[in-house]
Structure formats: C-alpha cells, structure tokens
C-alpha cells in the first residue's frame, strides 16, 4: 500500500493546525448562514452577548444561541463521531468498505429508537422532552451495541467476509423489523420516524446535546487513543498477537466505543450515511494509513463536513429544510465514486 507524500507525513502538527482552522471557519460559516442574515462583524458581538444579558435578547442573538449554535456543535459532534467510528471499524475489520451503517450499528440504534417511540412512549403517556432526550440515546446505544455484538459473535473466528455478510443480514433484519414496528405506528409517530431513516439535525437544542455529548465525546477520545493497536491490527490478527496485542479484547473494546458514539449520534440526528465511509478514505489518501493522523484528523474533517452539509440542508430549500442525510448522500456518493476510480488508478485499495 502506497502512503501519502513525505511532506504531508512529516509535519502532522501543521496539518492538525490547518484542519482546526478549517473547522473553525466551517463553524463561523454555518453560524453566519441561514434565513436571517448575520453580518460577520456582528457575529462576534453576538457571541460575546452571552455575558451581556441586555444584548442577548435580540432576535439575532436568540437565533444564534438557541438555534444555530447548538446545531453547529451537534453536527460537529455527530460528524466527528461518525468519521472516527468509520476509521476505527475500517481498521478493526481491515476492510475499506466498512462503516458504522454496514455493520448494523445505525440500523440497530434506529430499531431500538423506533421501538421506544412506538411502543414505550405511548404507554408512558405524555413524555417530557427531557425524559425522551435521555431515554432515546440510551436505548439507541443499547440497540446499536446489541446488533453489533451479534454480528461480532457470528463472525468472531471467521474471515472478515463472513463478518460483513453477517452485517448485511442483520441490517436487512433490522430494516424489516423497523418496517414491522412502523406498521403499528400511528400517524404522528410515523412522521417523526422519517427522521430516523434520513437523518435530521433540526431538533438540536442545548439540553439534548449536553445529555448526549459525553456519550459521543468520551468514546471518540477513547478511539483516538487506540491508534497504535489499530496500526498493529492492520498487519493481521496473528502478527498483532505476536506483537503483544490482546486482539480480541482490543476489537471488543473498540466496537463498544463505536456502538456508544454512533448510538448516541443516531438518537440525536437519525442515521446519517457516508460521513463514516468517505471521511477516513479522504484522509488516508492524503496522509497514508497511519491511524494516528487518521483518527485525529477524522474528528476535524468529519465534524467540519457535517457542519457544512447541515448548513446546506438548512438553506437549499428555504424557508423549509431538507433532511441532512440527503445532503451527505448527495455529496458523498459522487465523491466516493471518484475515490474508487482514483484509488483504482493508483492501486491504493
């Protein structure tokens, strides 16, 4: 496998700085853009207005602090979680096609969330938004973890192809079960459910973000620290074992972390495709397969791409909104096809 050019690999710190700046610029852009225009100079006054209650009552400040800011940080978190999870899964399974969606995490999370929405909430009566924003991430995490563990145990001592086939089967099963749950859904549950299949960040608010952010960021940080083990694993299970890596336990711990991060993001934003698949490939093309750069840069590239995609989803069909999953798939699929051709030519895959 060919690695990135020498210059790119030798100065990672410069590139970390570069991508941090890109992420900040993406955030500023997403905060400035929307139905109501905010001037660039005014933005920083508005951000400062949080310490000055008089200025914080204006409409622009309300929009910035209650709508755009939580949405920007949520999309940053979700994008980072998906990209890092994708990178980690591709490392564990040593397969470039794996993404959280393919090994059943997203489908399992969505199924659990659907069950809770359709069967549990109606029984509980009027559920306060605070309760639902706690129960939904937890059940989505449980669902994602369960489906991933099932797939993991089916393919445990088999080849990776078996594991991926198991993922396809569990995905199909979850899809069928979701369809079955929808059959029992009443009209309103059904409508809020389209959210799970297409991905949507419009429900972002501080409360649900604060509840879910530890579930997202702790596993993301943990996954970023696993780069050495993943580098070893990429040599093959046996080689990694001889290098002193507890192969099974490393895999299991990574899968747990991925399930937690993706489960929590799915519960807040629905199943968003392509970020987990495309972002790690982009970075690998530029910086080679070393997991240290891959994991850390995935956080920034995944986060900023997601923020931009969400900004487009808010503004394309003004004054209405598109589900963000449509945007990521529309940008992601052509880019992925380009990647396939490109890597085929360079024999990178």
């Amino acid at each position: 496998m060919q690695t990135g050019s020498g210059f790119l690999r030798q100065s990672p710190l410069v590139w970390y700085g570069f991508f941090i700046i890109i992420t900040l610029l993406a955030m500023v852009y997403s905060l400035l853009t929307g139905v109501i225009k905010i001037q660039t100079g005014h933005l920083f006054e508005l951000i400062a207005s949080i310490w000055n209650t008089d200025a914080a009552t204006g409409k622009e400040a309300l929009i910035l602090w209650n709508l755009r800011m939580p949405r920007a940080v949520l999309s940053l978190s979700v994008g980072a979680a998906l990209a890092v999870s994708g990178a980690s899964m591709q490392g564990i399974f040593r397969n470039p096609l794996v993404e959280p969606g393919l090994v059943g995490i997203s489908a399992g999370s969505a199924l659990a969330a659907a069950c809770v929405l359709v069967f549990v909430f109606p029984v509980m009566g009027d559920v306060s938004p605070a309760t639902s924003s706690l129960i939904l991430p937890l059940s989505a995490f449980a669902g994602g973890l369960t489906s991933t563990l099932i797939i993991y145990y089916i393919g445990r001592n088999e080849s990776i192809a078996i594991l991926i086939l198991a993922g396809v089967a569990i995905n199909a099963l979850c899809g069928a079960l979701i369809g079955w749950v929808i059959y029992y859904a009443d009209d309103s549950a059904l409508r809020s459910f389209t959210f799970w299949s297409l991905g949507d960040l419009s429900g972002a608010n501080w409360k649900s973000f604060l509840i879910a952010s530890p579930f997202i960021w702790l596993p993301v940080l943990y996954l970023c620290r696993q780069h050495r083990d993943l580098d070893m694993l990429s040599l093959g299970d046996r080689q990694a074992f001889h290098a002193g890596i507890q192969v099974e336990s490393v895999k299991k711990r990574n899968i747990m972390a991925v399930a937690m991060a993706v489960g929590a993001s799915v519960s807040l934003s629905g199943a968003i495709g392509f970020i987990g698949l495309v972002v790690p490939h982009m970075i690998r093309m530029m910086f080679g397969p070393s997991h240290k750069n891959l994991m850390i840069l995935s956080v920034f590239v995944g986060g900023s791409l997601m923020m931009l995609a969400d900004t487009f989803s808010r503004t394309w069909v003004q004054p209405a909104e598109l589900p963000v999953g449509i945007v990521t798939a529309m940008i992601g699929s052509p880019f992925f096809i380009y990647l396939i051709f490109n890597t085929k030519n360079k024999k990178l895959l």
Partner: peptide
Amino acid sequence: KVQLGFRNSISAESILALN
C-alpha cells in the same frame, strides 16, 4: 403567502425571521 413547508421541514429560523 410565505410557504413554510410540511411538518418536519418547517424551520424555527424561518418562523423567527417573519416577525
């Protein structure tokens, strides 16, 4: 009149913008 879209696609910001 201004068309806000359908249920899920109605955005809070558009509503705020209309005063």
